[in-house]
Design a protein around this nucleic acid. Structure first.
Lengths: 176, 176
DNA sequence: CCTGAAACGCGGAGGGT
DNA sequence: ACCCTCCGCGTTTCAGG
């Protein structure tokens, strides 16, 4: 039985503004299903409902929980087409001009990245025509040299940030 | 004033298993903040709390709302490093062997895509060492020919599917 | 951090337009 | 068919220990 006892977790230190094992389990639960009651979470992690509530409140205040949102189905709401778009720009600092794309509801992510491209976009829209229209807008931006689009054929997994982490992948940045 | 009257929205037809303007506004609110009460949403969209509840229930049952989850902050929970990894495989149908990666909490997305690569991964982890360890696991998979990693320098926007859509991008698949 | 009590919001039943 | 008003019950939330 790999059951985790309350005492075991309680002993794990929680540094300044840190996250202990209780918090991590709570975050793990909430990131999967935020509709369950605090009492249900309390049962799973070994705490009372008010104790869980206190921690959730602190996790919200500290920003560890950025928001709690409804996850929608792209197909069901008329956006069956998902694509990742790499944008190359000429010169430096052209990313600022691209922030306007943020206003479009089709854009879900916008990152500056290393590698053979400058900006990486995640775009979800209604049709190939809509994607074409979107790319036209991208090319209207000053300094845009070209784009490469990766249309997704099938999504095998899609979720948000997970609280758990794999230990043997490599040590964290604070250990050496 | 561009206020939307109840009567205007009520007239918009809702086809079989369809989504009308009320639903879209409700989804829009819930995808931004699912903690607000049904009454608050009702005020914003011009409906009573039970009416909103009825619609939310149907939207959940139909799958338009897949889940409601807490969105965590990667930095605050010890995963400051985000990367997109393109994986090239030799032959066809090697994607199945990659589904095992789904088990790792560092993997947030796994898509099959068109373009000059086969599989696109979104990976969030603790450190460059952890990313290296992850890539080692990818290369252990049968049929993997190579990878290209795009480490994100800064995330300018990151959100989930939005209910709204831009009309003049291009017509949807049902209009022609 | 846990136990008890109050306020709030959810979720259902019934009736109206 | 859809929405609104009313009400019971579970949950959140705050007090005290």
């Amino acid at each position: 039985m790999t059951e985790t006892k309350t005492e075991d977790i309680r002993r794990t230190a929680r540094g300044r503004e840190g996250i202990d094992a209780f918090d991590r389990k709570i975050l793990s639960e909430l990131s999967c299903d935020a509709t369950q009651s605090l009492a249900a979470i309390g049962d799973k992690v070994g705490l009372s409902a008010p104790a869980v509530h206190e921690r959730v409140k602190r996790l919200r205040a500290s920003g560890a929980i950025k928001a709690t949102v409804a996850v929608l189905d792209g197909h069901k709401i008329g956006k069956p087409l998902l694509a990742f778009v790499h944008v190359d720009t000429k010169g430096w600092g052209k990313t600022g001009a691209m922030l306007a794309l943020t206003q479009l509801p089709e854009v879900e992510e916008l990152h500056s990245v290393t590698g053979d491209t400058c900006v990486l976009l995640k775009v979800r829209c209604a049709s190939p025509e809509a994607l074409e229209g979107f790319l036209a807008r991208v090319y209207d931006i000053e300094g845009v040299q070209g784009t490469r689009s990766y249309m997704v054929l099938s999504t095998h997994m899609e979720r948000t940030v997970q609280a758990k982490e794999t230990e043997d992948l490599g040590e964290g940045p604070f250990i050496r």
